[in-house]
Amino acid sequence: MTDRVLKLVTGNRLHDGTVVYFAGSGAWTPQIDDARLVEDKDGAALLAEAQAGSPPHPAVGPALIEAVRDGRRIVPLMLRERIRAFGPTVAYRGD
């Protein structure tokens, strides 16, 4: 794992709330590994790009978060964002 902190943009998909990541070129993906990851200094530009476009915007509340690259995987730095990316840490009991 490299410990260089990079930036990506996340939000919740408008129509169903699913956690999504900005993949560039107007596209959003539920797969964090497909997110567009940029250097810290390019974060603001990435966020601006993610927010662009005419409504309805596909993601609610786009925000920059910190992540590191671990081989081909992308892992957010904060626990909150890891839980958003990988789901609750507890098994739930639906049927």
Partner: peptide
């Protein structure tokens, strides 16, 4: 409607936006 405009309308009906979904 933007999210800012919609938020209070959905909340009035009990709909929140949480970590994983609504």
């Amino acid at each position: 409607l933007s999210e800012d405009e919609f938020r209070s309308l959905r909340l009035m009906n009990g709909l929140y936006l949480q970590l994983h979904a609504y």
